[in-house]
Design a protein around this nucleic acid. Structure first.
Lengths: 157, 157
DNA sequence: AAATATCCTACTAAATACCTATGAATATAG
DNA sequence: CTATATTCATAGGTATTTAGTAGGATATTT
């Protein structure tokens, strides 16, 4: 479950590359990142449509980030390569939920969606692309979880 | 992304049913829950292997929960129907990560996995199967998120 | 004009999700 | 003890999604 498609993994690798290199052609990125050229071309097309990349055609053209990596959330990236996060159909369209039972399952799935969304939106491309210094923080998630669990326990008693 | 397979959705619906009915045959559950009979049979086989269900063969046999619904976590269910949560190969096997760059992406995916795991483990089957009273709480996730986001902001400043 | 890019459309291949079929093993009710 | 109702085991089969290819048109710089 929750296997992240290679498409999205490729997208992230390529974006990280672009953070460091500023601007590059699909061909060069595909080569150094070992990503199938034509596939990456298609992926970049999507990322551009989503407003994450800008492109210049022609000789010495190439792709570059459309805005600062600090302003690119990982949720933006995921939303660009795959669609919206929709764990179950009925989270959009409640009318499907004709099985009665007040649909607590639905609320469960909604909660999952919110949780994932929140996590993805809590990390920026800049954080992921940070130069490989031995002590870089970016520990948003472990703490996030500790807190969540603690909060849950509290609420329960 | 994160489309939850119908298999898991079926599993949950069927388990909820079993919470209320105590014991039932696959056929009866399949009919009332509108789940393909043979498919549900296969799913129950998995759930039994995972230790979530017990079964009695023969004429008035059927399935029942192997333990109290309060002790069945949704993470157990998901783990039973699909495997472990493995957003990216390298979260298990770090040796794949030969692309250098200290692999901050890997930490990002790990964080996602932890977040999802924590959420799934924070809800029990009992909570989802609660009788349909107008005011049943079970708001673990919305609050959980508010807190998380608040905490994140705090941490940021 | 030649070279090097992005861009566009269509296709194939592999994997996965979803479901069906057949029948054996087992227990119970009558 | 036999008919029946159940779980259990194995082997398919179809449809959808994911992953990747192919070929070329279009734009821009040198």
């Amino acid at each position: 479950m929750f296997q992240v498609p290679t498409k999205t993994q490729y997208a992230i690798r390529a974006l990280v590359h672009l953070v460091q290199v500023k601007t590059a052609s699909v061909a060069s990125i595909a080569e150094t990142e070992r990503i199938p050229f034509k596939y990456l071309e298609a992926i970049f097309s999507q990322l551009k449509s989503a407003g994450l990349l800008s492109a210049d055609r022609g000789r010495s053209g190439g792709y570059r980030l459309a805005r600062e990596p600090e302003l690119i959330l990982m949720s933006d990236v995921v939303k660009a390569t795959e669609g919206d996060i929709r764990p179950v159909e009925c989270v959009d369209d409640a009318s499907i939920c004709t099985v009665a039972e007040g649909c607590l399952p639905r609320r469960f799935w909604l909660g999952l969606k919110r949780t994932v969304d929140a996590y993805l939106a809590s990390v920026t491309l800049a954080e992921i692309a940070e130069p490989l210094s031995p002590r870089n923080r970016i520990e948003p998630s472990p703490q996030l979880n500790e807190i969540s669990i603690a909060a849950k326990k509290e609420h329960h008693s």
